[in-house]
């Protein structure tokens, strides 16, 4: 009891730098560097056809071989890092701002506004997310812009639910009542009393949403509905080179592995963070 509630000592913190955290940091750090500098270092342009040989094996053409059009897989992988991660970050930032702001508004508003917003959110969440995206894109078309906004809105429903719940939980705490009994404004209560206590779980949620965005966008690209060729995106690259698998080419495997390693890396960091945070919220977030 008393031992558990003590503040963690410095040695405790050191032991908490687990191997899985370090692996996660290394992977994510690596891909961040690739996204930033990869295109500058790439031997070819993403759309350059460097050989007339489709699915050339690794080593023969470039580092990782050629794709179905004879383009350099290695170069496209480097360009794809920027495209995929950039899009995912954009979507996450959008969905996060939308979800957090609306979630907080719902939490501190009266019954009617909260009820209305929550019901709309529930309705959106009643769709499996990919199905909703497909329906919207069939109606509005499959441009990149539409995909970004659609995925961001679908994603924001989860952020909305979490931030509303967090703010609600905190707004019934006694220290918020203390502030209310002082006559503090709603703005002050939200920004000074509630917000600081939601930062840790929201940070974890950001990581989770980021991986979700990567997976979602590359799945849509893979289905041919997201990023359009010849742009290099990891999802697009998997789709393009799927046939190559039959000829023993790993051109489809490389971008798929890139997505997988990146999301595993982010999730390792988030997982460490949630474990450190402890508590009920992280239990829920962990799933």
């Amino acid at each position: 009891m008393s031992a558990a509630s003590q503040a963690p000592s410095e040695t405790d913190l050191k032991t908490r730098f687990t191997p899985s955290l370090i692996i996660g940091l290394v992977i994510v750090g690596f891909w961040l560097l690739v996204a930033l500098f990869g295109p500058a270092l790439a031997p070819h342009l993403e759309s350059d056809i460097v050989t007339d040989m489709s699915y050339a094996p690794a080593g023969e053409v470039g580092l990782l071989g050629s794709d179905y059009l004879g383009r350099d897989v290695f170069s496209r992988l480097l360009y794809g890092a920027r495209m995929t991660m950039g899009l995912a970050l954009l979507v996450t930032l959008l969905s996060f701002s939308l979800g957090v702001i609306l979630g907080f508004i719902a939490a501190i508003s009266g019954r009617w506004i909260d009820g209305l917003m929550s019901r709309i959110n529930d309705a959106l969440m009643a769709f499996p997310s990919i199905i909703l995206a497909l329906i919207v894109m069939s109606a509005l078309g499959t441009s990149l812009m539409i995909m970004i906004v659609t995925v961001a809105i679908i994603d924001s429903t989860r952020v909305f639910r979490l931030s509303r719940a967090l703010a609600m939980d905190i707004s019934v705490m006694d220290f918020v009542d203390v502030a209310r009994s002082r006559g503090e404004s709603l703005w002050w209560i939200t920004v000074r009393e509630i917000l600081p206590n939601t930062l840790a779980p929201l940070a974890a949620e950001f990581g989770i949403r980021f991986t979700f965005a990567i997976l979602f966008i590359s799945a849509l690209s893979f289905l041919g509905l997201g990023v359009q060729p010849p742009a290099a995106d990891w999802g697009v690259m998997v789709k393009e080179n799927l046939q190559g698998l039959l000829f023993g080419s790993a051109a489809a495997l490389m971008p798929a592995a890139a997505v997988a390693s990146l999301t595993v890396g982010v999730n390792l960091i988030v997982d460490w963070f949630l474990r450190r945070m402890g508590g009920d919220v992280s239990q829920e977030l962990m799933n």
Partner: peptide, 13 residues
Amino acid sequence: LCFISVPEFFTGV
């Protein structure tokens, strides 16, 4: 954790 993270097309491929 790994299987949550990886996309279906990675596992499939």
